[in-house]
Simulated scan of single mutants.
Amino acid sequence: MRTQVGIVGAGPAGLLLSHLLHLRGIDSVVLELRDRDYCERRVRAGVLEQGTVDVLTAAGVGDRMRREGLPHHGIELRYGGAAHRIAFEELVPGRSITVYGQQEVVKDLIAARLAAGGKILFDVPDVKPHDLTGSPYLTFGGETLECDVIAGCDGFHGVTRAAVPPGELTTFERDYPFAWLGVLARVRPSAEELIYARTPRGFALHSMRSPEISRFYLQVPKDEREDAWPDERIWSELAARLETVPGFRLETGPVIEKSITPMRSFVTEPMRYGNLYLAGDAAHIVPPTGAKGLNLAVADVTVLTDALAQWYETGSSAGLDAYSATCLRRVWRAQHFSWWMTNLLHTFADEDPYGERLQTAYLDYVTSSTAAATTLAENYVGMVW
Rank of each mutant, 00 (worst) to 15 (best):
A112M: 14
T244L: 01
P177K: 04
T367W: 09
V159F: 05
G253M: 01
V381I: 14
G74A: 10
T160N: 03
Y38C: 05
D35P: 06
A179E: 02
S135R: 12
A322G: 11
E168Y: 05
A45N: 02
D306F: 01
G11A: 10
A325V: 14
Y176M: 05
G158R: 00
G80V: 06
A87I: 09
R44A: 11
L91M: 11
L278C: 07
R225L: 15
C327M: 12
L20P: 07
E193H: 12
L304R: 04
D306A: 15
T268L: 01
E378G: 02
T3Y: 02
M383A: 13
N379C: 07
I97L: 13
E212S: 13
F178T: 03
I285C: 03
W235K: 02
C327N: 14
T252N: 00
G80S: 12
E212F: 04
Y176N: 08
R330Q: 14
R36P: 02
E269N: 03
V220I: 14
R174K: 15
R2G: 00
A185I: 01
H336L: 15
R272A: 13
S214I: 08
R66D: 00
A239W: 00
R264A: 14
S210P: 11
M271P: 01
G9F: 09
H73V: 00
F172G: 00
A371D: 13
T144I: 07
T57K: 04
M341T: 07
I256C: 04
E257P: 00
K107V: 12
P262R: 12
A59R: 02
G382P: 05
L31T: 09
C153G: 08
L91C: 11
Y100T: 05
T139L: 01
C327L: 12
Y137K: 01
A299E: 07
L184Q: 13
M1W: 00
A116T: 13
D63M: 00
G247M: 00
K128F: 06
G14H: 08
L23A: 11
L145R: 05
S316A: 15
R264H: 07
